[in-house]
Design a protein around this nucleic acid. Structure first.
Length: 968
RNA sequence: GCCGGAGUGGCGGAAUGGCAGACGCGCCGGAUUCAAAAUCCGGUGGCCGUAAUGGUCGUGUGGGUUCGAGUCCCACCUCCGGUACCA
């Protein structure tokens, strides 16, 4: 009677694990080898789990269960990244406090995760919204706030590695004497400029509809909000920034030591975007001097050069120069104009009276556009001439200064020297505005212009003329002529440095991190603003003392947006918002809140010591558990979350709170699970079929028809309609989404087939890192497999759960031993490789081989059940018990395979003639080459193929194959 | 455009440079059954062939290296993901 019944089995064992705290993490911070396996914790949305979540979770769970059976101490926790906009928007709509919604959603998520039988240590669960947790998030923020980056500091970390550059306490920042002399306030303001957390007036993405400011990542390419698709405009606002750029180098370099795929490392490196080049100063004259508007002899240039050659390059560019950054200092002689970003501070000053109106209007237009608009619309280069000139430091020639929005204020110095002959953007601009183009690099002999270069080519006297962006030999460059690009770069950088006109420089694409949000539902900043007598911010700050943490959110709060870009907390009750310090200074709380990234930046640390109310982590526990040995999550976090978390980690490392420099030793991104594959046909408005290539890419106004597989057939690469093979239909799987209606709910799957089947299917679909379409009958396939396992061990026809009569205390046959040990070997190796799909195939092969044997020895089945346990733990526990065990198999030692059972006395090998398979022969496994060749020649088919031919060569690979190379 | 990843049966996929398509889904045939479900057995890349332990073609396309290529090299095509003037 008892068929395989996942409902009964899974409920039973989940209760058992709960009661016995089976997965409680061993406490001692010493002892056997540890393994810390972490999932990227979820945002508990109101929709509950979808089938994408359990993919990574199952992979980590298998790894953990496997490790426990191999005697390791395993840390496998779960928690909630629960601050975020949806709960706040729900609050605005319904008046329900976000914490109520959040904790309700968490309950759903927890129930669903428990239903899947994951071996988390639930004692360690927390949410980023718990005051006991965000107390330490705030504490870490204060650590960052208390830190400045000493780029020159040489030191040896607790990991024994020598480094240059270290985050140090702000109290150790050297204060220049003139600042010191100006009093305490000047010192404080000076320090504030160097902190890793600082305030900055920044244009932000204000979304009136959401009533909030969005990060660049939350705005799509059309300049609309990712959530809700509302229009977004730019607005300057006081923001908190974190100086992640200080760590750019170390964030890039330390990637060498972690075990991530090269493609993810590359993604991070590209995001950091380190480039080497030079900074060069172009003389523009003192601020109040007559502007250089004539093409005559430059005024003051020679004197300036003389001063520079004596004093060297000032660390900060003075007001008499425009400083530019270039990766091609070798093209300095070809700089025929300069460009300032519209936001560049010198624009106004450099603009001549005649150009004033045009420049002002241009800058105003540029300010209205968002970053994305600006790049998007800028198919054609735009810009205006300021009327002013700078002096090329090497040639002494005046070069016109333009303003153009293709130069970004946020990269480099916000100003460039434009070398149209050797830069495509400059070429395009120069061609548009008729600016001279002077080639200064000769391409190598025989060079053919690239696609891009050709695309922008222009006709000069009937000849095609192209930009050249590659490396070559210097021309038109004075004494440097004839040098290769590389030699030139080195030489001119050295020369410029010697003359005090420039220096080598490094730049990064990485920007500082905009760390404040105008939300209610986020961690408050533990920061106070000093107020003047009129209640205005003075710009001076005070941090809360550690003892005052956590700073909790105000209890009674009206969630209705007040319609201003100021944060909602600006409307918080006065007793939360204001206080008077002991010295009588009036203080107002910071009302921005932290972004969702904050909580997820360090949760992996807290899991090691989640209940500690004295420290964010006990150093002993930190040393034992960190780093995370395996971290699995979605590729969407491959850049930002990982970069941010690594940054915090490094600050804490520099400040002596952590002993290792990198948090995540091994990282794996699981691939997305798509909805079921769909066949879609298209009809125009009159109901006629359209072939896929006739369907317009956008604005399709006809009808989409979901087709049955019966209605189509494959023709070449494509699927076509059976009734009209000229009509090609679309065949693809789409991302699961509510609007498409193809979302699979794990509750339904568990209800139909059980958690073990769901887990098994998610792993069986294909390689973990790959994108894969869901297929419901695939779940039924693995469900059948589990049924087979069940019948192999249990008696399906008995009234009560009992052993199948074929399961006996008998000695295994040689064949059974061989199959078992082959399976142990394969499954073990596959789990270690995270190749779970093939591991499951191996177990299916085992069942196919052993399942029908009349005598199935217990000594063969027990190890098999253990192999199955990490994948399908519930049914494995049940079988384990059936086989006579009384304790959970969670800690039953993993079976070892024995080589001796794997050797086969006789093997079958292929015989090829000229590389083509002609026969398969059986030979003794240890046959030598001569024996193999003789055996091969003796085969009838082979002999026939060799007959009358001349054997040129025979390749014999022992134990593998024989190949005859013949002629004639 | 640039950067990454991937193209193998009807589908998901497997294959240290050595028997392509393991395993599963689907499909076809059979057994069991009054019947069905469930289960079990067999077959299943294309073409040729009465048959097979037969022939032949076959891993996106075109070239190459090799006794031998899905796998290595070169050029290209398509799809998916990321990114957007970074000087």
């Amino acid at each position: 009677m008892p068929r395989y019944d996942p409902k009964r089995i899974e409920t039973k064992w989940q209760a058992y694990w709960d009661e016995n705290e089976t997965f409680k993490t061993p406490e001692e911070p010493t002892g056997p080898e540890k393994l810390y396996v972490l999932d990227m914790f979820p945002y508990p949305s109101g929709n509950g789990l979808h089938v994408g979540h359990p993919e990574g979770y199952t992979a980590t769970d298998i790894t953990c269960r496997f490790a426990r059976m191999r005697g390791k101490h395993v840390l496998h926790p779960m928690g909630w990244d629960a601050f975020g906009l949806p709960a706040e928007q729900h609050a605005i709509k319904t008046g329900t406090h976000p914490s109520v919604t959040t904790y309700k959603n968490i309950d759903t998520f927890r129930r669903q995760l428990k239903m899947l039988g994951f071996s988390y240590d639930w004692n360690r669960e927390f949410s980023t919204t718990d005051p006991d947790y965000f107390r330490w998030t705030q504490w870490i923020f204060l650590q960052i706030y208390d830190t400045w980056y000493d780029a020159a500091c040489e030191w040896t970390g607790p990991d024994g590695k020598q480094r240059i550059g270290r985050g140090r306490p702000i109290s150790e920042l050297p204060i220049p004497p003139e600042i010191q002399d100006s009093g305490e306030e000047a010192v404080r303001r000076y320090q504030d400029k160097y902190r890793l957390a600082y305030q900055h007036e920044a244009p932000v993405n204000w979304c009136p509809a959401l009533g909030t400011v969005l990060s660049n990542e939350e705005v799509d390419a059309e300049g609309r909000s990712e959530r809700g698709d509302h229009p977004v405009e730019r607005l300057p606002l006081r923001q908190w920034m974190l100086r992640i750029t200080a760590y750019a180098d170390r964030l890039g370099d330390d990637l060498d030591g972690v075990d991530w795929t090269e493609s993810i490392k590359l993604l991070q490196r590209n995001w950091i975007g380190k480039s080497h080049g030079a900074e060069v100063d172009f003389y523009i004259g003192a601020p109040n001097a007559e502007l250089q508007t004539e093409l005559g002899t430059p005024v003051g240039f020679e004197q300036w050069k003389a001063i520079r050659s004596g004093g060297g390059l000032p660390q900060e560019a003075g007001s008499d120069v425009l400083r530019v950054y270039t990766t091609r200092p070798d093209t300095l002689y070809g700089a025929t104009y300069m460009v300032l970003a519209p936001e560049h501070p010198y624009v106004e000053r450099l603009t001549t009276a005649g150009q004033q109106q045009k420049v002002t209007e241009y800058c105003r237009q540029a300010a209205l556009k968002s970053d994305l608009d600006r790049t998007d619309l800028a198919k054609e280069k735009t810009g205006v001439f300021t009327g002013a000139y700078a002096i090329n430091p090497v040639s002494g020639e005046p070069v016109p200064i333009w303003v153009a929005d293709y130069v970004l204020i946020s990269y480099g110095t916000g100003a460039i020297m434009a070398v149209p002959a050797h830069d495509l953007r400059d070429w395009e601009f120069a061609a548009e505005f008729d600016i001279p183009i002077t080639p200064v690099v000769a391409p190598p002999v025989g060079y053919k212009p690239s696609k891009d270069e050709l695309a922008l080519a222009r006709d000069v006297d009937g000849e095609k003329e192209c930009a050249f962006v590659g490396v070559g030999t210097a021309i038109n460059s004075g004494d440097y002529n004839g040098l290769s690009t590389d030699e030139f770069k080195q030489k001119i950088s050295a020369d410029l440095a010697e003359q005090g006109l420039g220096s080598t420089a490094v730049n990064y694409k990485l920007r500082d991190w905009l760390f404040s949000r105008q939300h209610f539902w986020g961690e408050p900043f533990p920061i106070w603003h000093e107020l003047d007598d009129d209640g205005n911010l003075t710009g001076l700050l005070r941090a809360d003392a550690d003892s005052e943490l956590p700073v909790t959110l105000p209890e009674n709060f009206d969630f209705k947006p007040h319609g201003r870009p100021d944060p909602p907390l600006d409307e918080a009750p006065d007793e939360w918002l204001f206080k008077t310090a002991d010295d009588g200074t009036k203080l107002k709380r910071e009302t921005n809140s932290m972004p969702q990234w904050a909580g997820s930046c360090w949760y992996y640390i807290r899991f090691c010591d989640p209940k500690n109310d004295q420290q964010f982590i006990d150093p002993e526990k930190e040393k034992y558990w960190l780093p995370v040995d395996l971290y699995i999550g979605g590729a969407e976090h491959a850049v930002l979350h990982l970069l941010y978390a690594r940054f915090w980690h490094k600050v804490l490392f520099d400040r002596g709170h952590l002993s290792i420099p990198e948090p995540f030793q091994r990282l794996v991104n699981q691939g997305m699970i798509l909805g079921e594959a769909e066949l879609t046909g298209f009809k125009d408005q009159s109901g006629n079929w359209l072939s896929v290539e006739q369907v317009p890419a956008d604005n399709f106004d006809g009808e989409r028809v979901q087709l049955d597989s019966e209605q189509v057939t494959k023709k070449g690469e494509k699927f076509v309609l059976k009734e009209n093979p000229a009509i090609i239909v679309e065949s693809r799987a789409h991302k699961m989404s509510k609007s498409r209606g193809n979302v699979i709910n794990p509750d339904d799957v568990v209800d139909r087939c059980g958690a073990d089947a769901l887990r098994l299917y998610e792993m069986f679909m294909g390689p973990l890192e790959q994108v894969k379409p869901w297929n419901m009958s695939g779940v039924e396939g693995v469900f059948r497999f589990l049924g087979k396992v069940w019948r192999m061990i249990a008696d399906e026809r008995a009234d009560d759960v009992g052993l199948n009569a074929a399961v006996q205390d008998a000695a295994p046959t040689a064949e059974q031993s061989r199959v078992l040990h082959k399976t142990i070997k394969a499954v073990t190796e596959d789990i270690e490789k995270l190749s779970f799909n093939t591991a499951i195939s191996r177990m299916m092969e085992f069942t196919n081989a052993i399942g029908s044997h009349d005598v199935r020895p217990v000594s063969v089945l027990k190890p098999f059940v253990q192999l199955l346990a990490p994948f399908a733990p519930h049914v494995a526990e049940e079988c384990w018990q059936l086989l006579g065990e009384t304790d959970t198999l969670t800690y039953a030692p993993w079976p070892e395979f024995d080589e001796k059972y794997l050797v086969e006395s006789e093997i079958e090998i292929p015989v090829q003639v000229n590389g083509k398979l002609r026969a398969k022969i059986k030979i003794p496994a240890d046959a030598d080459q001569t024996t193999m060749q003789t055996a091969a020649e003796a085969d009838e088919t082979v002999a026939a193929n060799l007959d009358g031919k001349q054997v040129v060569k025979v390749i014999v690979v022992p134990g593998r194959m024989v190949n005859f190379v013949v002629k004639g």
